[in-house]
């Protein structure tokens, strides 16, 4: 038996069997959603992929409220875990990450993660290394109620020394195969372009691992750039990537993925991302002041994402909307009044 982080497969199936699956209005404030569904010690699934559709607004609210001993689960992420790591680096008594189960934590062309370096090089966090496929497969297993999923990659790698995978001879082919334990986060935090009041989500661009993550988790908090009419949502059922019954809270947060990219709506704010990452790098090198100032200005100094966006020059916001190529939110909708 292994030690499960988040829910065990048995606990998860029990939980999901009893979960309220009614089609009800799930709108609430982000404050309330985080109070209700994110607890100290939780395994939190971070949606999006690297810096696309990162649940930045939800993470900022978690930081404002303060949560400790979190386990983070994701395939590839950047801004979400970086913000949490920054909060931890500034005040461990208020926010802390205990463990991360992941494949990639960095910012692609912007550079590696300063605070992943800070936390690991100072031995402040427990890591479990996987590949992107491994993490997606673990969440897929979780979403379909199986305790493990077989996979070939990366047999032969050193990841097997840090993670809980087991290598067996396949009972059907006789060849070596790796078994990955299912992942069941306590709560998935996901940002999408469009949702309705029941929690149905329409995502633009690749789905990443968001549908699997939502289905594998006990709870799901959704922020969306736009709340739209339910009838418009269901006119294009193929485009619904996360169905309402796995969702617990829906909050309309325009720019909820800022300063990351939200496919079809806004591109990366290259300036702001670089400013934040630069402040993180300074902390790593021993100067916490710029990062403290950043948090005081953009996270602790505001109540919500609207107030954060009010601090960004309008010209910059217009620019990230303008340079986002290929606006193809072509399924159509009426914005919910």
């Amino acid at each position: 038996m292994i030690e499960w982080t988040g829910l065990s497969p048995d606990e998860a199936r029990q939980f999901l069997a009893n979960k309220d699956k009614s089609k009800r209005d799930k709108r609430m404030s982000l404050k309330e959603a985080v109070q209700k569904f994110v607890k100290d010690g939780d395994n939190v699934g971070v949606g999006g992929f690297v810096n696309a559709r990162q649940p930045v607004a939800i993470v900022h609210e978690i930081i404002r409220q303060g949560r400790k001993d979190l386990t983070l689960s994701f395939a590839s992420a950047g801004l979400g875990p970086e913000y949490l790591a920054g909060a931890m680096a500034l005040d461990e008594s208020k926010n802390s990450i205990k463990r991360m189960e992941f494949a990639y934590f960095a910012h692609e062309a912007f550079g590696i993660s300063p605070l992943l370096r800070y936390l690991t090089e100072n031995n402040k966090v427990e890591l479990e290394d996987w590949s992107n496929y491994d993490m997606s497969a673990r969440l897929k297993a979780g979403s379909i109620g199986i305790p493990f999923i077989p996979c070939r990659s990366p047999l032969g790698s050193d990841m097997l020394k840090t993670n809980r995978a087991k290598v067996i001879d396949c009972p059907f082919t006789g060849r070596p195969i790796m078994l990955l334990p299912a992942s069941h986060p306590n709560v998935a935090i996901i940002h999408v372009q469009e949702a309705d009041i029941y929690g149905n989500c329409r995502t633009q661009g690749p789905m990443f691992t968001c549908p699997e993550m939502s289905m594998a988790s006990a709870h799901t908090i959704i922020t969306c750039d736009r709340l739209i009419e339910h009838d418009d949502m269901t006119r294009f059922p193929n485009r619904v990537t996360i169905p309402f019954f796995s969702v617990d809270a829906v909050i309309e947060v325009p720019f909820g993925a800022f300063p990351g990219n939200c496919n079809g709506l806004y591109y990366f704010d290259e300036k702001h991302t670089a400013e934040f990452r630069g402040a993180c790098e300074k902390l790593r090198k021993g100067d916490p002041t710029p990062l403290q100032n950043y948090y005081d200005t953009y996270i602790f100094g505001v109540e919500n994402t609207t107030e954060l966006i009010n601090k960004i020059p309008l010209s910059q916001i217009q620019y990230i909307q303008k340079i986002e190529p290929g606006i193809r939110l072509d399924a159509g909708y009426t914005v919910l009044g």
Binding site: A103, Y104, S153
Partner: peptide
Amino acid sequence: TRLSGSGGAPEITCS
């Protein structure tokens, strides 16, 4: 020095 992690490269190198 901690680096980014593997991302999806293991799938490419294995398959």
